[in-house]
Design a protein around this nucleic acid. Structure first.
Lengths: 213, 213
DNA sequence: TGTTTCGCATGATGCGCATCATATGGAATC
DNA sequence: GATTCCATATGATGCGCATCATGCGAAACA
């Protein structure tokens, strides 16, 4: 269970501190490269170089490449889940959904996968990845769905059903992935706006199907 | 523009016929492997072996690996667009959309990417692929959206707007991709059914927003 | 029938990559 | 202050891959 993420105490010598700092730089570099280049593309040597180290130092931090992939994937969410999902204080599901789609389905997000959502960046890669990675993908997905819903099930606020959050995220991930896959700028823009609009319609239909209170 | 697909005349000797037959086998093998293993995974030697040839014969059919990828991608749609989109004769958009989602978002489709939709199998790979591949992706996407809509714009049947078809496909592609990425069978199943249900709600909202006649 | 063509096979070549073996130099420990 | 760690660097090793060079044999053609 213990993954080599930055979860160590602060109280130790410059030796351990330096190692933790190295690990942090490795994870930052890896999580960006992973999202930009994919699971196969994020090679060890370039990642280590980007972290200011050489390839040999890698094995002081991780057992193998797969372990790095899992840690870097998790790092991406530790850093930026809030940024895309946002703990919005909006009460109604349509308002929350509109906000999610408006943040997620943008040209800016499409054009900077290295800083964006790892679900969209790695969806098809994950399907071909080893079990440990797919397990992490599932756990982060569950956590993200919980964040989208925004309140525990027994909260008087009545969060949207898990299924509604899941479909909304699927719409966003699918729209962003297609918009990235396509060369034609007009079609790409059209995909983003079509999905933004559809998110709005869908959330309103969701609300009608499961009234807020 | 001339891509080396099977579009040659039937009237020539056994020499050309044999070559066309080889090409066909290469494309079939490549399009399955491409969807199963991704752009990087579909290596030349294994594909040629699966086609009953050796790696050396490859360059009699394609200039390089990228050209094969484009041809194999197109092949996937030439063969199986009908299968997922289906030229359904249903008149209403909700009925058409329900049918699309019911065919697309299945465990069978999820578990056999080699025979499934190439959009979902290669979405994130395409974002990192060379321009020629991305251009093909866009063209096939446009053609697929037209098939989903089912009628030309000036048809009295009033097809759903392009944007509605695009969002519906994004929902399907996103749902299938997430369901494949995840390890947990329960979550995976949940994603499929959540998106099927959402497709239904969305299509009904679509119909309300743009009445059929 | 002799010559040319060309689809295919065999066998390099070279590169990028993951991983390992070994060395080093400065903390940590006594 | 001497010894032990250990994070890092350097430099193999071996593999998979794309691509190219070369040869063969049967069809195409004169």
């Amino acid at each position: 269970m213990e993954s080599p993420v930055t979860d160590a105490p602060e109280t130790d010598g410059p030796r351990a501190r330096a190692k933790r700092e190295s690990l942090r730089r490795i994870l930052v570099a890896a999580s960006a490269r992973l999202r930009r280049e994919g699971l196969e593309g994020a090679a060890i040597a370039p990642v280590m170089k980007a972290a200011g180290l050489t390839h040999g130092a890698f094995y002081a931090h991780f057992r193998d490449k797969d372990e790095l992939a899992v840690a870097a994937f998790r790092q991406a969410f530790a850093t930026e889940r809030e940024r895309w999902i946002g703990a919005t204080r909006d009460r109604s599901w349509p308002a929350r959904a509109r906000r999610l789609a408006a943040r997620y389905l943008t040209a800016r997000h499409r054009d900077d996968p290295g800083a964006g959502c790892a679900f969209a960046a790695l969806a098809t890669d994950a399907a071909r990845a080893p079990d440990a990675f797919r397990a992490a993908y599932g756990q982060e997905l569950r956590a993200t769905l919980a964040a989208i819903r925004g309140a525990p099930d027994d909260d008087p606020m009545r969060p949207p059903p898990l299924d509604h959050a899941a479909a909304m995220l699927a719409l966003c991930v699918g729209g962003l992935s297609l918009a990235r896959a396509v060369n034609d700028p007009e079609l790409s823009e059209r995909l983003l706006s079509a999905c933004r609009d559809a998110a709005e319609r869908l959330a309103q239909a969701d609300a009608a199907a499961a009234p807020p209170d």
